[in-house]
Write a protein that binds this DNA or RNA. Structure first.
Lengths: 218, 218
DNA sequence: ATCTAATACGGACTATAGTCCGTTTATGTC
DNA sequence: GACATAAACGGACTATAGTCCGTATTAGAT
């Protein structure tokens, strides 16, 4: 059997759907649809896979054949938003190309922030993938975000927009602070999204503009 | 029945063992011992609660009566190290009391870093507590670390050691980057602990010494 | 020593993620 | 259209976290 080559759309971890058989594709859609329906009634953490299967009218085995695991299903549910995010990045947020890299970065981080808060519950579940094994940091979703931020930071340094800096480490710190559970915690305690976002913008700016005074031995 | 009042030792989330009956106390020890024995053979993620129960020679119900859940057991296993950590902090790391707050903070963060790397696997499991619900950020373990860092940061600002700063937010960013899974990831990829720690020290210093230039509207 | 009530025990039970495998279906070939 | 076979289906099965509850133990009171 010759598989039709399908365009690879590896975006934020969406499993590239390589030429599925018709029934398989249909079931994939039924499952996603079922999940989305259930998501309207309660957060993903309260939805079990059997229920998704039953709602979709397929067997549990089918769910797990279409989606590697629970986290994988969550990632697929995030796909649309992820596409939008990536398109915004590719389009450069409508900013002049020659705008300072820090401005680009500000927009990128804003977008990542929105993505994280708007999808906190799904993301939390999606990231739980392989806890303790630390594999999550090798996941395309994470790698992509890291690359995007890192690129701008490097350019900003080269361009003398900010002092020299360990861009790799800084990138990771910026991303770590975007932990969906942390954001959720703040929002649940009454901080508005706007405030939180502003705080966050100030924070990463402080990080990348900071110097290391290496204040004496101790 | 009158309970003997026991000293409350609420450290890093260790459940204060309030006057247990003799059999209960004995079983608590048996369970901890069993867990530690098993931990010598493989990481906590590969050990199931039935096994702990069986090894300890008690029923599963007993395990769950002594320890609220898996995460709770992990926290108990971290207790000794947590005590040491707290004592170091209380002792001020043997630094002169009038040393700059940033120096104190450097030692604190070093200690937190060591604690996180030395206990990464247990911590990862312990923190997994209540994912998606964001309750982990209200946990005594986290609150304690936050307070400790926050206190030094505030003093450092008041003392003009660093420019004004959103100390609360900065504290959270510093802690977020200490994610045990992230540290594990680096260590697994060959970064030495020494290097990683040095990088981390530079990073938080950059953060707290940074300014927010508020570069133009965009 | 006995009594009694609070406390604890243990293992069967439930819930749920994820696997396995015998049966069914789609699809390219003749 | 019939055939062969790769792919997919579905639900029973396994593994494991956490609950429940009838029975057993402890410890203060008498």
């Amino acid at each position: 059997m010759v598989l039709k080559k399908s365009v690879k759309l590896e975006i934020l971890g969406q499993p590239a759907p390589v030429a599925e058989r018709k029934d398989a594709a249909r079931n994939r859609q039924k499952i996603l649809e079922a999940a989305r329906t259930l998501l309207k009634t309660r957060p993903i953490q309260k939805i079990c896979m059997d229920e998704v299967a039953k709602t979709a009218g397929v067997g549990k085995g089918t769910v797990y054949r279409r989606f590697e695991d629970r986290a994988s299903l969550c990632r697929a549910l995030l796909h649309e938003d992820a596409i939008r995010l990536q398109n915004e990045v590719l389009a450069g947020f409508g900013i002049p190309h020659d705008a300072p890299n820090l401005v680009h970065l500000a927009h990128l981080i804003d977008a990542l922030f929105d993505f994280a808060t708007d999808n906190a519950s799904l993301l939390s579940e999606a990231l739980a993938f392989e806890r303790g094994g630390a594999k999550r940091y090798d996941h395309p979703a994470h790698v992509w975000q890291r690359d995007a931020i890192g690129r701008y930071l490097e350019r900003a340094v080269k361009n003398d927009e900010i002092p020299p800096l360990d861009t790799v480490a800084a990138t990771e710190m910026i991303l770590a602070a975007l932990d969906p559970d942390l954001l959720t915690w703040h929002l649940e305690r009454g901080t508005t999204k706007t405030t939180l976002k502003a705080t966050y913008q100030r924070l990463w700016r402080a990080l990348v503009t900071g110097s290391d005074p290496c204040r004496r031995a101790y």
